[in-house]
Write a protein that binds this DNA or RNA. Structure first.
Length: 875
RNA sequence: GGGGAUGUAGCUCAGUUGGGAGAGCGCGGCGUUCGCAACGCCGAGGUCGAGGGUUCGAGUCCCUUCAUCUCCA
């Protein structure tokens, strides 16, 4: 049975038992800021379990993409060294939302394992929570598992909780005894042993309590089921192979690594580890990038970067010094194509991103090697043989140069590394970073409201005004019953026409009028549960909870925003048409005054392409296509080929926005009703955001017309100033610039000439003191540079001597002292200016042969020069 | 969220108590050559990331800010 068969069989089994097959959600969790990546099957159903969300089914089954790296669950450092750790894996699961409970869950699990997958019932063990007698009863009486194969474990192993508070409950795990051959051989080897004999394969969570802040647990009215069966692990059992890395979903990746390196995975322990790391990380990288994450220096992108770099580093251990990860990732597409066709579609983009990262990392390594070698050279000069730990740490911490590569290099040169020192520095850094991190907390008031089942109704698709009632007022993060004039306030209403910021479209602005007061709404946001919060300030009277209110959206701004939003959809479609199907939306901002669109593309969009895109978008606008909006089931929408975005969350009912036959997108935003309303579309900039992602900014409607007029005025006025027509403006400007250049040159030449003339006029001022030529003179130049030039000329003339020049410019004084090289042992230019500069109220300094100074008392310049003469004569 | 580093010519970078903005490669012109490569000579190209401060004077010191890199959480 292939891995893909195992997955299919699971989903089909539960579909047969009236479960909705739900597609895997993106690896990026949409509404959970505390979670870096989706790491379990239940994540996308969290709000269903909490009762905050309802969907059209009460039973579901999924094969969920999961990543465990970088967050609370971090298996990154284990991958390669164990049989079953992954950063990326798939979790099969069946879920009941207040439908069936323990009995059926146990029944399904056992039936599928024994009858479906054909596992021997007498090799299956079951663990349950200490006092969950109900579960024990079901397993023993209903299923017939002998009592000696039912084991009770404590809270650590068999009690599950979503967090410190919320739904929780006991769980029950099904284990498989693979026989002594897989065991550690110890006499006390039994279920729970760390070895590979007893494999935990399926975890059934019985969600039956709700735990409050005080720790008290109350029974849930509708208990639920959440189960998790690791696909890779299950496949390894059914294919009867020793590790997850021997299954047909992964072996092809390893085989590619073997082919590329020319080394077999069994060649050495090192090779074995490297192959596993490469196989796992290739999968993680392919899927993470496929879900829209790009390598970066923070957050999710940084975790992705670390995963890729870890793979590259291990690749070096088996001689893969050139970029290879994009090749092993290609195998991932082939293997996973049946279940994840969208991954294969993005192949070009994903491999490109990986290759870029490989090149970037090799730059990091090259630079680190350079720094390391410099350090080693210095050490050798000093006769040291151990690289200090803080040096290694600095290379790692600041330049990202991996420690194991330091060790390789150092070993080759028969030197040592102070790893203890490194670890001390590392621990210090950890300690330092572990200071409590405070992240934005959603006010408790909002949370309570949502938990009580309140749902604000959005009525802004059809109108911009609504009558409603104040449900909640929050000021300074705490709930209030009244907000007075001047107070900043967050308002929640029963119904609202205000669009809360989401999907790139900014929140509406407008006013809320109550019986005794008015609030200016400056922004509208949507919290993760969909609660619409109006943010504003009371500008008149006061607003109280329960007030009847009229909510009015600023019409002009909303309308402008709608034009930009519809234009964004047209732009998206035309980008794909002009640049290719690899173009995918990577971010979007739709504001009243402009739109910004980030998308995946490998190179700069040429000016010609930009023109063509702009032209096509405007053509679509002139077609005046109707904007049709359909609400439908998400599955139907996907089937119909509507474009969905990876960073967006979609419920089961979605809105599909269609523009004639050229655009069909899932979108919750507000749109204009015909493309012709947009009027005019103008691109105003094209830039890069990250490698592989470009950004376009554009304007529409009035803003676009104003922009055109503005630039037209500039050209017209410029032409008028140059007494020319706009068409020949550029030619004219070229001439003007050329003329200016030559004049500047002429000025330079003349200045030099003037300086030369001044320099010629010196005979009378050169004095001979003790055989040394001295020139002390007041001159008329206006910049330090000119003064230097002049001094240089004198020096060239004198061949040997000391020159001190001074010049008064406005309220400032410039001084310079030059000593020819042959005299620097007797005179120090720096000391000369230092001693005379105070006379003009300044200071100065410089090199022995040249020094400058300045001052703010021009009236004392002659006095200062006199002092210089005395100083030099007195030598 | 906390730390470290970098930002100077188209590119790679140098710039040492604060005192003439530089190198190599690339680019343009000329020369040598039948031609090319190579070489020689000449030349263009810089808001020293941005803003503020200290100073007579800031690429250099201080503060703020942006961008990039990097480690930790």
């Amino acid at each position: 049975m292939t891995g893909n068969d195992v997955r299919r069989k699971f989903l089909e089994y539960f579909e047969k038992h009236h479960h909705q097959i739900v597609r895997s959600s993106s690896l990026v969790p949409h509404d959970d800021p505390t979670l870096l990546f989706v790491n379990a099957g239940m994540v996308q159903f969290k709000r269903l379990f909490l009762g905050e969300e309802k969907r059209g089914y009460s039973r579901a089954t999924t094969s969920q993409k999961c990543v465990r790296a970088g967050g609370k669950h971090n298996d990154l450092e284990n991958v390669g060294y164990t049989a079953r750790h992954h950063t990326f894996f798939e979790m099969l699961g069946n879920f009941s939302f207040g439908d069936y409970f323990k009995e059926k869950a146990v029944d399904f699990g056992w039936d599928l394992l024994t009858n479906g997958y054909g596992l021997p019932a007498d090799k299956l063990w079951v663990s349950i929570f200490l006092d969950d007698d109900e579960a024990a009863e079901i397993w023993h009486r209903q299923i017939g598992v002998p009592e000696d194969r039912i084991v009770r474990f404590g809270e650590e192993d068999n009690f599950w909780a979503m967090g410190d508070t919320g739904p929780c409950g006991p769980c029950s795990e099904i284990h498989l005894d693979r026989g002594e051959a897989y065991g550690c051989g110890k006499p006390d080897c039994a279920l729970g042993c760390e070895c590979d004999r007893f494999l935990e394969i399926w975890n059934l969570v019985f969600m039956q309590f709700n735990r409050d802040a005080s720790g008290e647990m109350t029974p849930l009215p509708k208990p639920s089921i959440d189960t998790g069966l690791g696909l890779e692990r299950m496949v390894s059992i059914l294919q009867d192979v020793p590790t997850n890395y021997d299954i047909d979903l992964i072996v092809p990746i390893i085989e590619r690594a073997e082919a590329l390196s020319g080394i077999g995975r069994n060649a050495s322990h090192e090779a074995e580890v490297a192959m596993k790391v490469i196989a796992d990380h290739s999968r993680a990288a392919a899927f993470l990038i496929g879900d829209g994450i790009l390598p970066s220096n923070e957050g999710r992108g940084y975790v992705l970067r670390r995963i890729m770099r870890r793979a590259i580093r291990y690749g070096r251990n088996i001689g893969l010094t050139k970029p290879f990860l994009h090749e092993t990732a290609t195998v991932v597409f082939d293997v996973m194509k049946p279940e994840y066709p969208e991954l294969a579609e993005a192949e070009a983009f994903i491999t490109n991103v990986i290759q870029n990262e490989e090149l970037r990392f090799s730059e990091t390594i090259d630079y680190g090697l350079k720094l390391l070698n410099e350090t080693l050279d210095e050490m050798k000069v000093r006769g040291e043989t151990v690289v200090p730990g803080d040096v290694v740490f600095k290379l790692y911490d600041t330049y990202g140069f991996p420690v194991d590569i330091v060790q390789d290099v150092v070993r080759d040169q028969a030197l040592g590394v102070d790893m203890d020192g490194f670890n001390v520095a590392m621990d210090r850094q950890r300690e330092q970073s572990r200071q409590v991190s405070s992240f934005d907390e959603i006010s408790d008031a909002f949370r309570t409201l949502t938990a009580d089942g309140f749902k604000a109704e959005f009525r802004g698709y059809d109108g911009i005004e609504a009558e409603s009632k104040v449900v909640l007022l929050v000021s300074d993060g705490t709930e209030v019953t009244e907000a007075d004039t001047g107070a900043a306030v967050d308002v929640v209403a029963e119904v609202t026409p205000f669009y809360g910021e989401s999907g790139g479209q900014v929140g509406d602005v407008g006013t809320i009028a109550g019986p005794q007061g008015k609030v200016d709404v400056t922004d509208t946001v949507k919290d993760p549960t969909g609660l619409i919060i109006h943010k504003g300030r009371v500008v008149e009277g006061a607003l109280r909870t329960g007030d009847a209110i009229t909510l009015s959206v600023d019409e002009d701004k909303r309308r402008a925003t709608q034009l930009n939003h519809t234009a964004t959809h047209i732009l998206h479609a035309m980008l794909r048409k002009v640049l290719g199907d690899h173009v995918k939306q990577a971010g979007s901002l739709v504001a009243p005054d402009r739109l910004r669109f980030d998308f995946t593309h490998f190179s700069q969009v040429t000016p010609e392409e930009l023109d063509r895109i702009e032209w096509l978008v405007n053509e679509r606008i002139r077609e005046n296509a109707p904007v049709t909006i359909d609400e439908m089931d998400a599955e139907d929408a996907f089937q119909s080929g509507a474009t969905a975005l990876f960073e967006e969350k979609y419920g089961d009912r979605v809105r599909v926005i269609s523009l004639a036959d050229f655009s069909k997108e899932l979108c919750g935003g507000t749109h204009t009703d015909r493309t012709g309303n947009i009027g005019l579309f103008k691109i105003i900039s094209e830039s890069s955001v990250a490698s592989g992602v470009r950004r376009l900014e554009a304007i529409t409607g009035n803003a676009a017309v104003e922009q055109m007029q503005h630039t037209h005025h500039i050209v017209r006025d410029a032409a008028r100033m140059l007494k020319d027509t706009p068409d020949s403006l550029l030619q004219k400007l070229e001439g003007v610039i050329a003329g200016q250049k030559s004049q500047e040159k002429e000025i330079e030449r003349l200045k030099a000439k003037i300086v030369g003339l001044q320099a010629d006029d010196t005979a009378d001022t050169i004095q001979k003191v003790n055989g040394v030529s001295l020139l002390v003179k007041r001159v008329a130049v206006d910049t330090p540079g000119a003064l230097r030039d002049l001094a240089d000329r004198y020096r060239d003339k004198l061949k040997s001597g000391v020159i001190v020049l001074g010049s008064a410019v406005d309220s400032k004084v410039l001084l310079i002292a030059v000593v020819t090289k042959d005299l620097t042992d007797r005179f120090h230019a720096g000391n000369i200016v230092k001693s005379i500069a105070p006379v003009v109220g300044g200071g100065g300094g410089g090199r022995p042969d040249m020094a400058q100074a300045g001052g703010s008392k021009p009236e004392n310049l002659d006095q200062a020069l006199k002092k210089a003469e005395e100083l030099l004569s007195g030598d």
